[in-house]
């Protein structure tokens, strides 16, 4: 197992370097002058231009520019947002909890619904229930999720008037950000109704964001289960006189989980991509919306820093998934 992990870690090095190169090049390939892109100042005197040029180090040879950028990145300096004049890192960590909260809720929904659905479908393979569940999952799989979000708003907010359309919490509450996770902060604040309001705001975006991962998890659980239920060791388990519940819920599921965990890990990227749309639709103040807004505002340093940050997070998570996989798969343990 140690071998697997160290190999994966080694393979990450060139990838990391590549990601830094991409984000370094980003500012230099966008249309327009990098000085303007980095400073956001449009009208300036030539003196000011030279001054900025020097400040950003753009007067240095390219490779020196790169190494100085690499140094900045390693020391945790991801640039400064034009719009807010704050370091990107700071900005990022203010907004990141909102995205994490939303994504975790979505992932939680996807797992607790997706796995049982996949199992039921596998057990009833070819029967009406299976066809029904897989039919619905196909709809979910093909759903443009921004449209799905709009439909939810039309129905639950517009027609029924049950749930709020945007934001993380009703504006009447002022919650001090202790952890950044409103579910926790609202409980800590002790304000009456704050927690409920948080839940109500979380519901629609949570459902919308969970849709694709849920469907993928359900389908993969089903196909893994179908295959496993045909295995010899399942027959052995029945031959031991075990109940169906135990055979399916323990012997089969344990094997299926090895596959499903990998699938769940792969959903992280999908979740972050989905968060971009979901957050835009529900005005959710997370990094997805922030990235889109930054692109709209031509806040290129923010986009550059955000891109780098997000890819680092994706890579870290992928690594953790590989690690978990190695941990739960006895064949890789030794």
């Amino acid at each position: 197992m140690f071998k697997v992990i160290s190999k994966n870690l080694l393979l990450m090095i060139p990838t990391l370097l590549g990601i830094v190169i991409i984000s370094f090049s980003f500012i230099r390939v966008i249309p327009g002058d990098p000085v303007i892109a980095l400073s956001g100042e449009r009208a300036m005197t030539p003196e000011r231009y030279d001054e900025l040029m020097h400040e950003f180090g753009l007067d240095l040879p390219l490779h020196e520019q790169f190494f100085s950028y690499l140094g900045d990145v390693v020391s945790g300096d991801f640039g400064k947002s034009i719009a807010t004049r704050r370091p990107v890192v700071e900005e990022f960590f203010t907004l990141f909890p909102a995205t994490v909260e939303l994504s975790l809720c979505a992932l939680f929904l996807a797992i607790v619904i997706g796995i049982p659905v996949g199992m039921v479908s596998a057990l009833k393979k070819g029967k009406l229930v299976d066809n029904l569940l897989m039919g619905v999952s196909l709809i979910g799989y093909s759903m443009p999720i921004f449209w799905w979000g709009l439909l939810m708003i039309v129905f639950f907010s517009g027609y029924l008037g049950w749930l709020p359309v945007s934001g993380r919490i009703s504006t009447q509450f002022f919650i001090e950000a202790k952890t950044g996770f409103l579910l926790i902060d609202s409980l800590l604040s002790g304000e009456e109704g704050a927690f409920l309001s948080t839940i109500r705001h979380l519901t629609l975006p949570g459902i919308v964001l969970s849709t694709i991962p849920l469907v993928v998890i359900a389908r993969q659980t089903r196909s893994a289960m179908v295959e496993i239920l045909d295995e010899d060791y399942i027959r052995t388990a029945y031959a031991k006189g075990l109940s169906k519940f135990r055979v399916v819920g323990i012997h089969a599921l344990r094997n299926a989980l090895i596959i499903v965990i990998t699938v769940i890990g792969l959903q992280i990227g999908i979740l972050l991509a989905g968060a971009i749309l979901t957050e835009s639709i529900f005005s959710w103040p997370g990094i997805g919306k922030w990235m889109v807004d930054s692109i709209y505002r031509r806040d290129y340093p923010a986009v550059q820093g955000g891109l780098l940050f997000i890819s680092l997070i994706v890579m870290t998570i992928n690594f953790i998934v590989d690690f978990t996989y190695a941990l739960i798969n006895p064949k890789l343990r030794k």
Partner: peptide
């Protein structure tokens, strides 16, 4: 070999 559960 295939008759024993690989995960336990």
């Amino acid at each position: 070999i295939s008759s024993l559960n690989p995960c336990f």
